[in-house]
């Protein structure tokens, strides 16, 4: 199962979502072996928790780059556009 080759914490939200979708449809199809299906379910709940965290943590953070003498970004300061 290629989804498991990558730790969940390294997945992008999109990857985790796709993996969860796959887990659900495999469980629903009833084709998974009984032993596998328990593992699958556990994996699915982990994916779900990860996706929920990703969604919940979404917060706007607006910063303005400050440019150093070399023309490169030297830092950032909060930007208030209103």
């Amino acid at each position: 199962m290629n989804d498991k080759s990558k730790p969940i914490s390294e997945m992008s939200f999109e990857e985790a979502m796709a993996a969860l979708e796959q887990v659900v449809s495999r469980l629903e199809s009833g084709n998974a072996a009984l032993e596998d299906s328990i593992d699958l379910y556990t994996y699915g709940t982990e994916l779900k928790a990860y996706c929920e965290t990703k969604l919940r943590d979404a917060q706007a953070k607006i910063e303005k780059i400050t440019v150093g003498a070399d023309g490169q970004a030297s830092g950032a300061t909060p930007l208030d556009v209103e």
């Binding site: 659900v24 469980l27 629903e28 709940t45 969604l55």
Partner: peptide
């Protein structure tokens, strides 16, 4: 995305019992 995730988690829970 939250709606999709909610739907998926509901199906996950349902499918757990269904497997047995």
């Amino acid at each position: 995305l939250e709606a999709t995730l909610y739907d998926l988690s509901k199906r996950l829970t349902l499918s757990k019992g269904r497997v047995i």
